[in-house]
């Protein structure tokens, strides 16, 4: 396989709220290979968005810190970068597609003005070249009559169109890595289908890598090559996408897949994971999922399981330890 474009090693992130210190991210490690689409799946509070902000260097610097761990992007350590160095990377080598296309575009600038912003910052182009580049990228994301659209304001576009503009902005500087944070959650089903097929088309080209953050296993099944499942700030499972859906090892992943309505008989009781996601400050000793796990053993409440690995399929669960016997 190709070399990895992003490698996160034992990343920890701390937030300080007054005297409280919470760790929304604890020892997260994964990598994204060039050309891969990696899905980060998790519910609210799983730390998936915080991870992506760390990769973009967008953590609020006054209250957050990275006490340990590395983020290697294209061989470069990112966690120690200064703001000025970050600016060279953001929007240029790593770009982001946000969840809310409504609020992530500035309402007082035209589409053309907003799209020329990253070009001005990262590329030396004449006005004419800029315009040509913008129109080209707008065509790429399937925006009709781009020559007119560049003179329009965000409010004149529909939600789906705005998300296309966001994607075109992320594509503009040909980044090595794109991060999409719930890119279709705010959109309708038929528009979601449009945007997903667009993202698929984009990632199929060249060495484009995508880190796709979502809570929707359906989107993962559609889009991803590799899946990282996060729960309460930790990675609980990580595997190739078919492997994950065929052979989920962690009880949390199994629960998520089993609770999809399409995996349950119509009108029957859905499989449900009991209880609630713990808040970061509620994390106690032992396995983070133990209090909701149907298979929890005594050991799970005492000791946090290490990441067991088998042919690259990683699962952080005591059931995978060889002395417990493999339970399937």
């Amino acid at each position: 396989m190709a070399e990895s474009i992003l490698e996160i090693k034992d990343l920890k992130i701390q937030f300080q709220n007054g005297k409280h210190i919470v760790q929304p991210i604890r020892e997260v490690s994964f990598q994204i290979k060039a050309g891969q689409t990696v899905g980060i799946v998790g519910e609210s509070g799983s730390g998936k968005s915080v991870t992506s902000l760390a990769v973009m260097g967008l953590l609020p610097d006054r209250i957050s810190s990275i006490p340990s761990g590395e983020i290697l992007f294209d061989g470069k350590e990112l966690t120690k970068l200064k703001e000025k160095e970050w600016r060279k990377i953001r929007g240029n080598e790593i770009s982001m597609i946000f969840q809310e296309p409504m609020t992530s575009l500035n309402p007082v600038f035209t589409i053309g003005q907003q799209l020329s912003e990253p070009l001005k910052r990262h590329r030396q182009l004449s006005n004419k070249e800029q315009k040509a580049a913008i129109i080209k990228v707008l065509k790429q994301v399937g925006i009709p009559r781009p020559e007119q659209i560049i003179h329009e304001y965000p409010h004149q576009l529909s939600g789906g169109m705005r998300q296309r503009v966001m994607i075109s902005m992320a594509l503009l500087c040909e980044p090595k890595l794109m991060i999409a944070d719930e890119p279709t959650t705010a959109l309708d089903v038929t528009i979601q289908a449009q945007i997903l097929s667009l993202l698929k088309k984009i990632t199929s080209k060249k060495d484009r890598s995508l880190m796709l953050i979502t809570h929707d296993l359906g989107v993962v099944a559609e889009m991803c090559d590799w899946v990282v499942v996060m729960y309460a700030g930790e990675i609980v499972e990580s595997a190739e996408v078919n492997e994950l859906f065929d052979r989920p090892l962690h009880p949390y992943t199994r629960g998520l897949i089993q609770s999809l309505p399409s995996n349950n008989e119509r009108k029957s009781k859905l499989y449900a994971i009991q209880g609630q996601v713990p808040k970061p400050e509620q994390v106690k000793q032992g396995c983070i999922f133990a209090n909701r796990c149907p298979l929890a053993m005594e050991k799970c409440f005492q000791e946090s399981p290490p990441a067991f690995q088998e042919d690259g399929h990683l699962s952080k669960c005591w059931l995978q330890s060889s002395d417990e016997g493999v339970v399937r």
């Binding site: 007054g18 209880g275 609630q276 713990p278 808040k279 400050e281 509620q282 106690k284 209090n291």
Partner: peptide, 28 residues
Amino acid sequence: NEPLIPEDDSLAFSQKTKAAEFFTSLLH
């Protein structure tokens, strides 16, 4: 009543009284 919410942990952190919260915020 299967999905009974565990009484201790899920709400433990909001137990602090409003007055105390108010006071600490003033001290900060």
